[in-house]
Design a protein around this nucleic acid. Sequence first.
DNA 1: ATCTTCTTTGACAACGATATCAATAGGGTG
DNA 2: CACCCTATTGATATCGTTGTCAAAGAAGAT
Lengths: 335, 335
Amino acid sequence: MAVTIKDVSKDASVSIKTVSRVINNEANVAELTKNKVLASVKKLGFRPNKSAQSLRSKKSYMLALLYDNPNKSYLADVQSGIFNACKNTGYNLVIQECNYKSSKLTNDIIQFVKDFKIDGLVITPPLSDMQDFLSNLEASKIEYAVIAPRIMNPDSLYVSSNDYEASYNLTSEIINHRHRDIGFIKGHPKHSASLLRFNGFLAALKKHGLEPNEQWIKQGNFSFESGFDAGVEIFESSKIPTAIFASNDSMAAGIMKSAQMKGMEVPNDLSLTGFDDSPIAQQIWPALTTIKQPVQQMAAHAAKILIAKFDGLVDKTKSKEFKSELVVRESLKLL
Amino acid sequence: MAVTIKDVSKDASVSIKTVSRVINNEANVAELTKNKVLASVKKLGFRPNKSAQSLRSKKSYMLALLYDNPNKSYLADVQSGIFNACKNTGYNLVIQECNYKSSKLTNDIIQFVKDFKIDGLVITPPLSDMQDFLSNLEASKIEYAVIAPRIMNPDSLYVSSNDYEASYNLTSEIINHRHRDIGFIKGHPKHSASLLRFNGFLAALKKHGLEPNEQWIKQGNFSFESGFDAGVEIFESSKIPTAIFASNDSMAAGIMKSAQMKGMEVPNDLSLTGFDDSPIAQQIWPALTTIKQPVQQMAAHAAKILIAKFDGLVDKTKSKEFKSELVVRESLKLL
DNA sequence: ATCTTCTTTGACAACGATATCAATAGGGTG
DNA sequence: CACCCTATTGATATCGTTGTCAAAGAAGAT
């Protein structure tokens, strides 16, 4: 039915192995032979059978995306970035929803990778920081790239962003708007970004000689609801801050809703900033001042360095830190 | 290295073929033999090599999700539904971002399916309604299930929802709140749901003896921005409707933002309803009265009927229409 | 008792690539 | 000219399953 290497080898009057050499770009094939084979490949429309390749060479040309993330917009961006990086490389993307709390996680994933001969994994927070899990993958010789890990192991592949610095800058911006009473909503405790953002906040306060007020610092988990709840709590306190820095946009939106339900107006009664520049930042009114992260590019880069490694281009692409940028909108006001 | 059929056959003192029969649940294996084999399989921890299976039997145990959808929340729900349906079936999910306008779409997808021996496709709007595309898939003997197609071909696998009816009901609800001047924002012209929702709206108006006002009917494309723009236009007209029915929540949010920027308050100055019950419906204030669709279940069902077909359980599960339900929140007010 | 038929089983080929290793052909060297 | 070395090529084994087909045994029919 389909065109096989055998057909090509006959058409080009060379051996099967020589065709294989050509399509795998192996060394030591005479230029003339190579061209002859490529012509036949093209003429017959030959495409190698992935199953046969996979069986013999133990590769699948599949990457898998591992995630356990409640944030749909983040997921969609990551996925899209990886997908685009795979395009035209012959690799495809299979997805794997995980439960980071499951005790079977490690075994399930290893089994999955072995069963399907998945070539490599792209791992997102909070899985990026599960050292045990990552060590087990390594022990099983599974290739992976992590997005936004806390510990940036120079031996492993990763992409990160300058969360600390961005948070420091955003906090400074708030302070420059003459705010002194600033609340902070922490992100999901298992995401390393949460700590970085909080630390950046604290550092900026300190730098400007301000003290954090524990009453206005709440633990969230990156969800809208956790932001809403934090807002409700803060607005019950005796004194209300003039600005709140939420560790992501969803939580900021939650706070805005709780504020509006209390009859407060943003930014007149309360300034508010988010983080991530997810779609919701622009879909509420007033729109959020926030930090834009190049999520798609980060994810694409993660896939690229993995693929580069498979293709032996070890030095072509490397782990990298991406820069975020401040996006000024209406939710932050000069006091 | 890994345990193969051969190892199992030795351990169980049967032929390789018999082991194969057992793991594929073929008929005509004596109960005794079967148990013996299963015991060995378990004892040795045997797992069939997917590449070899794939090579020989031309199956991959992979489904692919095709989408070209700007709505990240919808995508995430669909994906999650399919993923859960695949769980414990041995099937996995690979994703394929498409451009429904691309002329190469059909060829690319067919090539992709052939290359990777993808067992079946789950197809989402607006691809669900591209008849040419679907016919080509059929001609290539590619299995697929469509989500929310306009034409429900009884020979094909599909899942749908009662958009027309739901829209009719929601419109009636608006009218029951004594609104007579009602605007409507249409959805993406290529999505069949758009037409169904619009027709349901018109039918309800007619039933209550109301005439649609062309000035308040705008074409959107399901995006927040298109809703925002439609809002801006409507609020420039000489007379403003007392209620607007947007064909999805994102557009409703866009309208709300444009209203708030004009200084109007929802629902006091304007009632607003959406469709889909996506997260944003609750993340804005006031929260949207909307229609909740069981997107995850629909997607899961699509995957299930595909897998059931592969496994020969033709009559176990079938195409199905899902029911949406009205979700009452604060954005719709009695006039 | 003999002939069918059906159930159960296994030997061996086949799927379509890559890996191993040997063979051949030039090119350079002393 | 004999020798070695390297670049190029091909014959054949191999990956781990499933498919084909024939054989053996059990059960049923006459």
